[in-house]
Amino acid sequence: MIEVSNLVKDYGTVVAVRDVSFRVGKGEVVGFLGPNGAGKSTTLRMLAGFLGPTSGSIRIHGYDVQREPIAARRHLGYMPEAAPLYPELRVREYLHFRAALKHVPRRERARAVEAAMERASVTELADTLILHLSKGYRQRVALADALVASPPLLILDEPTAGLDPNQNREVRRLIRELGKTHTILLSTHILSEVEATCDRALVIDRGRLVAEGTLDALLALGRRRGLEGELRDPERRAADVARSVHGVRALSFRDGADAPDHVHVTVELDTDTDEKAIAERLVAAWVGAGVGVRALGPGKSSLEDVFAALTEHPEAGAPA
C-alpha cells in the first residue's frame, strides 16, 4: 500500500527527515511513533503530497506520489493534524464539497456523505455550522472527510490529539473498526494509542527511523536485562541469600499488599551472564534458605521503556 524509500526532507535550516524507508502492507494498521518534532508530520505530509521530498520516493497503491500525484491521492484519505475545516460551512455542505473534490460521482455523492457521517458518528450534526463544533467533533468531521471517497488507505496525523478521554476511546474504537476494512497509517506520540490500535509500529526520532516491528518485537527490544518475581519472605533473608549468588549485581524489593508475606523483587544482573542459569541458581538458593519463591521470570518492559530507550539522547545538547 505504501512504499517509502530513502525519503529525505531538508528544510534548509533543519533536516526534518533523514533517509527513511518503510513499507505498509495491505490491511495493516501501523502506528507511526515518535516524540514531538521527530518528523512524523513532515513524513505524513510528504506521503499525502502536501510537501515534496528533497530526495527519495513514495509509492501509494503503486502510484508514484511525485509523478502521478492525482492517481496516488485518489487512493488515500488523509487527515491533517489540526483537522482544518471551513468554519462557515455546515458539516454536510463541507463533506459534499470534499466528495466532489475527490471525484465521487454526482449520483453517489449524497449516499457517500451520509455513509461517512454515519461511520464517524456525526450524522446528528449534519446541519450544524463547523464553527460551532467542539474539537472532538471537528476531528470526527475530518475523519469523515478522509472516509468519504472510500479510499483503501487512510493516513491519520495524530487522530486523537486534543481529545478528552471519552472521545479518545471513541476514536480508538473507530480506528480499530476501520482497520478491518482499510489499511491505516496513523501517527502519535502516545504509546497507549499504538498499543490500543496498531498491529505494528514504526518509531521515528530526530528524522530517523530507529525501530520497526510488531508490538511484541518492540517490547523485546526495550526489555531490560534482569529478573522479576514475587517472594514470600517473612524472615527477610532473600536479599542476603541472593547476594551470594554469582552474577547478581543488585536487588530491589517492594512490599506487596500483604507484606512481608508477599514481596516483589527486581534483580539486576551482571552483563555477559546467562539469565536462565542465574535464575536457576537463585531459585535454588532461595528455596534452600526457606524463602518462598512464588514467581520468577524475565523482566517485563512497557512500551514507555522502549520508547525512552530508543529515543533518549545521552549526547543531549548536541546539534540535532
Binding site: 491533517p80 473534490l101 472527510d145
Partner: peptide, 13 residues
C-alpha cells in the same frame, strides 16, 4: 487556517 493542507492533498491540480 490550515485548510490549504486539506485542499491540496485532495486529488486536484
Amino acid at each position: 487556517s490550515g485548510t490549504i493542507e486539506a485542499l491540496l492533498t485532495a486529488p486536484v491540480t
